[in-house]
Each structure stands twice: as structure tokens, then as C-alpha cells.
């Protein structure tokens, strides 16, 4: 038993060693000495086509759009496999759908602990957001993402090199002969695929829908009484000072709902965008072995951010369903 385990571990060790040796051979002066370039960082999604979709101005087919399609396909595949697994009538699923099931079970337990009887309404949102963001984040870690794309000339710092079947941008280094690039007029790559979490449209869409659904949950649970959370005039006249403070706090709640949108959107975007830039920078500084560690970090961050986004939505929804203010109980 232990011998088999040892063998497996040795095998994995050799693979890591081989990868390091290949990296050293490719990227250092000992071998080919390829210079790893630092790609240009764009904050908005880059357009892949010149003409806008459906003629709407400013609405291009961007690489984050492709990323969105990818994330959708991933979620659909998850749905398909989970559904098939459940239909097969097993007691527990196996493979990827088993992992999804375990994740969902943990999330549902968490929801039940926080939301109580509203679990049935809240949990689907939790699951949706977590699964969608998780697939969007992890798709960005696949090889080829953010590196394969059109070469865009006249924009960037590097020269183009023709490898026959494919072109690439190439860093010839300073003072190389017969390659003259004017600053900012070389070429850069516009990748086909970029994870959709690095597009503010996606994160804002998620945040807006999440905060809206929080309000919807509040109305469903408390009816019009939910509005007294924001327009609190209950004690405005009988207790002037505290009534006024309550009123002010209610208005602040309104502001905090708006700031929730911003904080949701920028948290996800900031983490994922910073992660992508981090991997670029680390890859261009130390191309051998070190990026692998940052890929692992990004794997972790991607999952944590997905769960945090879903969990915060769930928590806010659960809070909205609970009657706010202890005054209600006092009068009841």
C-alpha cells in the first residue's frame, strides 16, 4: 500500500523536475533564451471585431463576451452532468458532479444556518452566483486563455515574428539589428478569450441583480413594512431626538444598499483583474516554476471569491427577510 503511494509521489516529483528543466531550457541563457514578454494590460474587454453587434454603438464582440459564453457552457455542462447523475438514481454522485454536489451541500447547510425558513428562496441565488463565478474564474486559468489571439499592429512594444504556421510577438531585446520598433508602435496580442470576471460589466450585472433580489426578498418577507427600514418615522414625534437619529440611520441604509453594489462589483473585479496582472508580471519576471505557485494562489482566490460573493448575497438576503429593529417586538 505504502509502496504504491511512494511510487506515485516519485512520479509526480519527476514531472515537476522535468517541467522546471524545460522551463530553464526555454527561458534562460542556458538554452534557447526566449525572453518572456509582459503583455499589455487593458482594463476594458478588448473588441475582437471592428463592427458593433447589431449596429448598436459601443457594443462590440469583446473577448470577455467570449469568456461569458465559456462560463455559461461550463455551468450548462455542470447542470447536464448533475442532472444525469441524479437521474441514474445513485445515492451519491461521483466525479465532477460529486464535487459539485458536495459543494452545494455545504452551501445549503450554511444557508440553512443563516436564513432558516427562507432557504428555499435564497439558496438558488447562492448556488447560481457561486457556480457561475467559479466557472468564470477557473476558466481564466486554462492555458491559452489571455495568450492566444489576434495580433494587433501599431499598438504595443514588441516586433512580430513569423513562425510559419503561426505568428507571435517577439522580444528581440535592446539594440537588436534590423528590428526597429518605435515606442508604442509595435504589436500586441488581443486574446480571443478572457475570463469574464475581469470585465466590470459582468461584476456590475451580478451586483445589481444581487442587491435587487435582496430588496425583493425583503418585500416578500415583510411586505410594505420593509420600506420602514429606509424611511423610519416610527418614533419621529414621540421621541424627537432618537426618532430623528433613527430617521437618519434609515437614510444611511439606503446609501449602504447602493454602496453594496459598488463593493460587490469592485471586489470580484479587483481580485480577478489583479490576479491576472500578477500572473503576467510574475511570468515575465521569473518564467521558471514561480508562476505555478501563483496559479495555485489564483485557484484558491477564484474559489474564495466565488463563495464570498454568493455568501454575502445570501447573508444580505437573510438579513432583509428578518424584521429589522427591535421596536416591533416591543409593541407586539
Amino acid at each position: 500500500m505504502s509502496e504504491v503511494k511512494n511510487e506515485e509521489r516519485t512520479w509526480a516529483r519527476w514531472v515537476v523536475l522535468a517541467a522546471i528543466i524545460v522551463g530553464v531550457f526555454l527561458f534562460t541563457g542556458l538554452g534557447l533564451g526566449i525572453k518572456v514578454i509582459m503583455p499589455e494590460v487593458f482594463l476594458p474587454g478588448e473588441a475582437l471585431s471592428e463592427t458593433p453587434i447589431l449596429g448598436i454603438e459601443g457594443f462590440y464582440l469583446t473577448n470577455t463576451f467570449v469568456g461569458m459564453i465559456g462560463a455559461d457552457i461550463a455551468v450548462l455542462l455542470i447542470a447536464f452532468f448533475v442532472n444525469r447523475g441524479v437521474k441514474s438514481g445513485k445515492m451519491a454522485l461521483d466525479g465532477v458532479s460529486g464535487a459539485i454536489e458536495a459543494l452545494l451541500e455545504a452551501l445549503e447547510n450554511m444557508t440553512e444556518g443563516t436564513a432558516g425558513k427562507w432557504t428555499k428562496d435564497i439558496f438558488p441565488w447562492f448556488a447560481t452566483i457561486t457556480l457561475l463565478v467559479l466557472s468564470a474564474n477557473w476558466l481564466g486559468l486554462l492555458p491559452g486563455v489571455e495568450t492566444i489571439g489576434f495580433i494587433h499592429e501599431g499598438h504595443g512594444d514588441y516586433a512580430v515574428r513569423d513562425l510559419g504556421f503561426v505568428q507571435t510577438i517577439w522580444d528581440y531585446g535592446e539594440g537588436a539589428e534590423n528590428v526597429h520598433i518605435e515606442e508604442g508602435h509595435g504589436a500586441s496580442v488581443v486574446p480571443f478569450f478572457r475570463p469574464v470576471s475581469t470585465d466590470l460589466n459582468f461584476t456590475f450585472a451580478l451586483a445589481i441583480v444581487a442587491v435587487l433580489m435582496v430588496q425583493v426578498m425583503g418585500f416578500r418577507a415583510l411586505g410594505w413594512g420593509y420600506l420602514t427600514k429606509f424611511w423610519n418615522t416610527k418614533h419621529f414625534f414621540d421621541k424627537p431626538i432618537f426618532g430623528f437619529i433613527d430617521f437618519g440611520v434609515g437614510l444611511l441604509e439606503l446609501v449602504s444598499e447602493l454602496s453594496k453594489i459598488l463593493s460587490f462589483a469592485f471586489r470580484l473585479f479587483g481580485n480577478l483583474f489583479a490576479g491576472a496582472v500578477l500572473i503576467f508580471v510574475m511570468g515575465s519576471l521569473v518564467p521558471v516554476f514561480v508562476p505555478a505557485m501563483f496559479y495555485m494562489l489564483e485557484l484558491f482566490v477564484g474559489m474564495i471569491q466565488a463563495i464570498v460573493f454568493g455568501m454575502l448575497t445570501m447573508t444580505f438576503m437573510a438579513q432583509a427577510t428578518q424584521s429589522h429593529g427591535d421596536h416591533d417586538e416591543a409593541h407586539a
Partner: peptide, 19 residues
Amino acid sequence: ILGIAFAEAVAIYCLVVAL
């Protein structure tokens, strides 16, 4: 994790401003 997410939001705002 919730608390960390809230604390981290501040750093993310900084990062966004920097970006």
C-alpha cells in the same frame, strides 16, 4: 471569511484606484 471579505474590500478599492 465574511469579515475578511469586508476588510479586503478596502484593499480592493485601493487597488481599483491604483489601476
